[in-house]
Design a protein around this nucleic acid. Structure first.
Lengths: 339, 339
DNA sequence: ACCCGCCGCTGCAACGTTGCAGAACAGTAA
DNA sequence: TTACTGTTCTGCAACGTTGCAGCGGCGGGT
């Protein structure tokens, strides 16, 4: 393989020192116009591209951020990844996406040590199964921004939406349509998912504020958050002696699965059962009926997370960890049309 | 920031030379059991992790592959990315996902030069808008595997399914259900998309084999391949004096958009209009009705592409470029149930 | 007794870049 | 002339790793 050109080759061709070429390329020291031009010509002629491996080794950084998500083919994470990659690019960073498949072992591996031998400058983690305790025990020095989980004692930078309020609003939205029996799909035990806990809390809070009792049999847990799980949960609910007339699902995939279960039984959405989801994935907008949902500001989440991480890699290295809140809004579509 | 430990630190602690630690870590030279144990203890105690930047600089490779796709939030690409990342991991490679948004400039930038300063060892490209000519002009030495496009003269490794056959089978599937007027959604001019051309060819071939004439007004072009485009195209078809009774869409998003357009007009799928898509994305399985589709073996595509690229980075560097074909099958679901 | 070969380990140099300190030169002021 | 300032450019060393060559010591064959 023909070796690609190095600073040395450019220097020889332009008749200057290696150092001067480096200065021109990086725009560092003052360089005479004439010299600059000669160097630039040589750079163009030889198609010189700085070797990032060498540059980063010398500079002590890699220019690479890691985005760690449970599953990339879950639309919410794909949409988030898109935004994160774009935002990182604005700062000159490259993004490596890693999937954990929800395995705690993989998550630990990626955040505990200087993952991949300091190949990454920082990590954005959307934790799935990592316990709070494990996070707190982390002793890596690589900056970490958490997505979507409540802050841990000990503290990391943390970007999230107000899950309790969002869930409360979604539930209240269903109450506002006149529903009395509203179910929740997606609850999880504390160790597994903090987020689910917060949404259940919001669900309960809405009941409290509406002066309605919570029927515990209407809160259905899920181990995973895929369409199939939503369909299964809906089947469980429909088998109850007194099924719900509205369902709040903790993400859109669950909701789409639930709708599928309803429609395939000949039930109508929203006439027989209203459905609202969470995440505002594109699928929901084009489902039939289109899916009402809680829409987190994904773009804003990505911006907050990346900007925070980049700041911490630069000047703000020693700032205390901060809580960053992103917006959300209720997106009412056909699946919760008023009766 | 506390410096992370280096080979030197481990060597000091274990009382051996740097070189010996390196040998232990890499399993290279024969090392006495006693020495090995001491080194391994020191490695564990200091939580030594090799600095990949330094290692790769020395070795002349980065261990990073780039996957270049038009849009990561298009489910097909997200599912493909997932498989590619997993497969690359098996070979010890890390994957950077880059999105081009279909901009030729971005695609060119990523494949032309030694992209990102040789940060990548190789590239897997799913081209959107890059012309054949531009590909042929490429003079980078970084190995490139193409996905989904017909091979270019000059030659690259290339992984694809047999688009013509797949499209023919999809169309024939609709004929088999007794449909006479079958439409196609997703045609594109040659410069933009080779893949679309192949599918149109398959569509025509099916007509030929069935002895039916092609009604050109039933072939609707699309600039993009999103749900909205499918919905728009379907609207166009429904406005015809004699609308089709079945539609073959060049991807599942178009098909879901088309179904949406049908259902929102009160038409039934498949009773009034049958719909089949392409890609077998997860959304289609849970749509109502569930979407029939051409299912390419994504896992196989990812394996072929990654394995080929890795082989080319190793021993097979000088092999001639090869055409690799992945399987596909017709996945018949509710949207094309027999009448 | 001698030599040879193998095992286990080591030091040096280099990958391509940048930080640092300073050299060479020109211009200005005293 | 000398001293000083500033501009432009340079050489050396280092980032943390691995390739290469080589060194001592020990055992076995002749």
């Amino acid at each position: 393989m023909m070796a690609s050109s190095r600073l040395r080759d450019v220097a020889e061709r332009a008749g200057v020192s290696i150092r001067t070429v480096s200065n021109v390329v990086n725009g560092y020291a003052p360089v005479a116009d004439d010299t600059r031009r000669r160097v630039e010509e040589a750079v163009a002629a030889l198609r010189y591209q700085p070797n990032l491996l060498a540059r980063n080794l010398k500079r002590g950084r890699s220019g690479i951020l890691a985005l760690v998500v449970p599953e990339l083919d879950v639309p919410y994470f794909a949409e988030l990844a898109r935004a994160v990659i774009a935002q990182a690019r604005l700062h000159g960073y490259t993004v490596v996406v890693d999937q954990t498949d929800g395995e705690p072992e993989r998550e630990r591996e990626l955040i505990m040590a200087n993952a991949r031998g300091a190949l990454f400058d920082g990590v954005i983690l959307s934790p799935m199964s990592l316990s709070q305790g494990e996070l707190a025990e982390r002793d890596s020095l690589m900056p970490l921004v958490l997505l979507g989980e409540r802050s841990v004692t000990g503290g990391f930078d943390h970007v999230a939406i107000d899950n309790v309020t969002a869930a409360r609003e979604a539930t209240a939205h269903l109450f506002g349509l006149g529903h009395e029996r509203v179910a929740a799909i997606g609850d999880q035990p504390y160790e597994t998912g903090d987020t689910a806990q917060l949404r259940t809390a919001g669900f309960r809070l809405a009941h409290e504020q509406a002066g309605k009792p919570v029927d515990e049999s209407l809160i259905v847990g899920c181990t995973r958050f895929h369409r199939q799980d939503g369909a299964d949960a809906m089947a469980t609910l429909l088998a109850l002696p007194e099924p719900p007339t509205a369902v709040f699902c903790y993400n859109d995939l669950l909701a789409l699965g639930a709708m599928r279960a309803l429609l395939s039984r000949g039930l109508r959405v929203p006439e027989d059962v209203a459905v609202i989801g969470f995440d505002n994935i594109e699928d929901g907008r084009f489902a039939t009926p289109s899916l009402s949902t809680v829409a987190p500001a994904k773009q804003q989440i990505a911006e907050l997370a990346v900007d925070r991480l980049v700041a911490r890699l630069g000047a703000d290295a020693d700032e205390p960890p901060s809580e960053l809140w992103a917006e959300h809004r209720i997106e009412a579509r056909e699946s919760t049309l008023g009766r």
